[in-house]
Computed example of a mutant assay.
Amino acid sequence: MGTSKELKLRCWIDIDGKKFFGSGRAQLLMMIDKNGSLSKAAKEMGMSYRKAWSMVEDMNLRGQQPYVELHKGGTTGGGAELTETGRKVLSTFLAMNTKITATVQQHTEEMLGLI
């Protein structure tokens, strides 16, 4: 019976030792951008609205600038959109992860062959 080996890597950013931004929050920002709504983004991710709202609030408070602008409901309904900072953080994080993944893939066969 063969042994299954896999090289995995996760990247996230801590602020003062507490997790701040990673793939989950990046996905949430992508869903907000796609749907224009925090509740729709949370639903699509299988996450409670409360959890999604808490994540957005944390990013907005601990980031240098807010990442998401929330619009209250009313006759036209509410909504959410990424700020310019949110867009820059998301695109930079995704680009960085693409480069990291490419580097890991480049060395995976050799590394796993040694294990």
Rank of each mutant, 00 (worst) to 15 (best):
M1G: 15
T3E: 14
T3M: 14
T3Y: 09
K5C: 02
K5T: 07
K5M: 09
E6C: 05
E6P: 08
L9P: 05
L9S: 11
C11I: 14
C11P: 01
C11E: 12
C11H: 13
C11Q: 14
W12C: 09
D14V: 01
I15D: 11
I15N: 08
I15P: 06
D16W: 08
D16G: 02
G17T: 07
G17W: 09
K18V: 15
K19Q: 13
K19Y: 09
K19P: 07
K19N: 09
F21V: 03
F21W: 00
G22S: 02
S23W: 05
S23P: 10
G24M: 05
A26Y: 02
A26N: 01
Q27P: 00
Q27A: 13
L28C: 01
L28A: 02
L28M: 06
L29M: 03
L29A: 01
M31I: 05
I32C: 00
I32G: 00
D33C: 08
K34Q: 12
N35Q: 03
N35F: 14
G36H: 07
S37P: 04
L38E: 09
A41C: 00
A41G: 06
K43W: 07
E44R: 08
E44F: 00
E44Q: 13
M45V: 09
G46H: 07
M47C: 01
Y49I: 10
Y49H: 13
R50Y: 03
K51G: 05
K51D: 12
K51N: 13
K51R: 11
K51F: 08
A52P: 05
A52H: 02
W53C: 03
W53N: 12
S54H: 14
M59I: 10
M59T: 10
N60S: 04
N60T: 00
L61P: 07
R62W: 01
R62G: 03
G63F: 03
Q64D: 12
Q65A: 12
Q65G: 03
Y67M: 15
Y67T: 11
E69M: 12
E69N: 11
L70V: 09
H71M: 07
K72W: 01
G74E: 04
G74S: 11
T75G: 14
T76V: 15
T76H: 14
T76R: 15
T76K: 15
G77H: 10
G78K: 11
G78W: 04
G78Y: 01
G79V: 01
A80P: 03
A80F: 06
A80V: 06
L82S: 04
L82M: 04
E84L: 12
E84P: 07
E84A: 12
R87W: 06
R87L: 07
V89C: 01
L90P: 00
S91M: 14
S91C: 06
S91T: 12
T92W: 01
T92Y: 08
L94D: 14
L94C: 10
L94H: 01
A95K: 11
A95E: 15
M96L: 15
M96F: 14
M96R: 05
K99H: 10
K99V: 04
K99G: 11
K99S: 13
A102V: 02
T103A: 14
V104A: 10
Q106D: 08
H107A: 08
H107D: 03
T108Q: 09
E109N: 07
E110R: 08
M111H: 12
L112S: 07
L114T: 13
I115C: 12
I115S: 11
